[in-house]
Simulated assay, not measured.
Amino acid sequence: MNFGTWPRLLVVDVEGNGANPPDLVEVATIPITAGRPVPQSARSTLIRPPRPITAFATRIHHITNHDVDSAPCWESIARAVQANLDGVWIAAHNAHVDYTVLRRHLPDWQPDGVIDTLRLARATLPDAPGHSLDALLAHTDICLTGISGQRHRAGFDAHATALLLVNLAAHYPTWDALTTAAIPPGMPGHPTPDHEEQTLW
């Protein structure tokens, strides 16, 4: 894999407040450059949601209502988040969740493409004992030493997913081969058939 052929790509992760549909309480991004995550350029922010964080959500990501008391509301940071995400590919584990939440909060935003590391892992490692992020990190023996934060926080999960993406990408000869396996149907970046192609009668 020639990582120099990759477009600008950000691995993203979001955490919600447990409502349905969820309000954002944390957003994180980390770029991959030359085949490596770049933690120095990572961005992560807590967000004060309009509705309280549920106890169930707190049990998962350990973000409490007290933690976000002084955090900015979404409206005050939405423009900066969109500026960071404009004109890039995004990647996430089970990407339709992150993509759907971000699109609901940023209706004028559309990434250049969406890579789903869950879909990619199922294609690349079909015999893995599981395809959750935890199972794949253990199966691939990816070293998480040095990642700041903890599991189920957006910054940590984005960095871990970036390492997983780089690991899986090594199985593919080209960017096109990778994206063929990694982009869910209907997501940005997925090739569409040429309806103008002539039909042989």
Rank of each mutant, 00 (worst) to 15 (best):
F3L: 01
F3P: 00
F3H: 02
T5H: 13
W6Y: 10
V12M: 12
V12F: 13
V14Q: 07
E15V: 02
G18Q: 08
G18S: 08
N20H: 13
N20Q: 13
P21Y: 15
P21H: 14
V27T: 05
V27S: 04
A28P: 03
P31Y: 11
I32L: 12
T33Q: 09
T33V: 14
A34Y: 06
V38S: 06
V38P: 00
Q40D: 09
S41W: 08
S41A: 12
A42N: 02
A42H: 01
A42Y: 03
A42K: 01
R43T: 09
T45I: 11
L46F: 15
I47L: 07
I47W: 09
P49Y: 10
P49A: 06
A55K: 12
T58D: 06
R59N: 13
I63Y: 03
I63F: 03
I63P: 03
N65K: 07
D67N: 06
V68F: 11
D69M: 12
S70Y: 14
S70L: 15
S70K: 15
P72A: 13
C73N: 13
E75S: 11
E75D: 14
E75G: 12
S76Y: 08
S76H: 11
S76C: 06
I77M: 08
D86H: 02
I90C: 06
H93G: 02
N94A: 07
A95N: 01
V97E: 01
Y99H: 05
V101M: 06
L102D: 06
R103F: 02
P111L: 12
P111G: 12
V114I: 14
I115D: 00
A123R: 07
T124A: 12
L125Q: 11
P126H: 14
D127Q: 14
D127E: 15
A128S: 15
A128K: 10
S132Y: 09
S132I: 07
L133V: 11
I142F: 09
I142Y: 12
C143F: 10
L144G: 07
I147A: 12
G149H: 09
Q150K: 12
R151T: 15
H152A: 09
G155Q: 09
G155V: 00
F156E: 06
D157H: 02
D157P: 01
A158V: 03
A160H: 02
T161N: 00
L163V: 04
L165K: 03
D176R: 02
L178V: 00
T179C: 14
A181N: 13
A182D: 07
I183L: 01
G186R: 06
M187T: 03
P188A: 14
P191N: 12
P193W: 10
P193I: 08
E196G: 03
Q198L: 10
Q198N: 04
T199I: 08
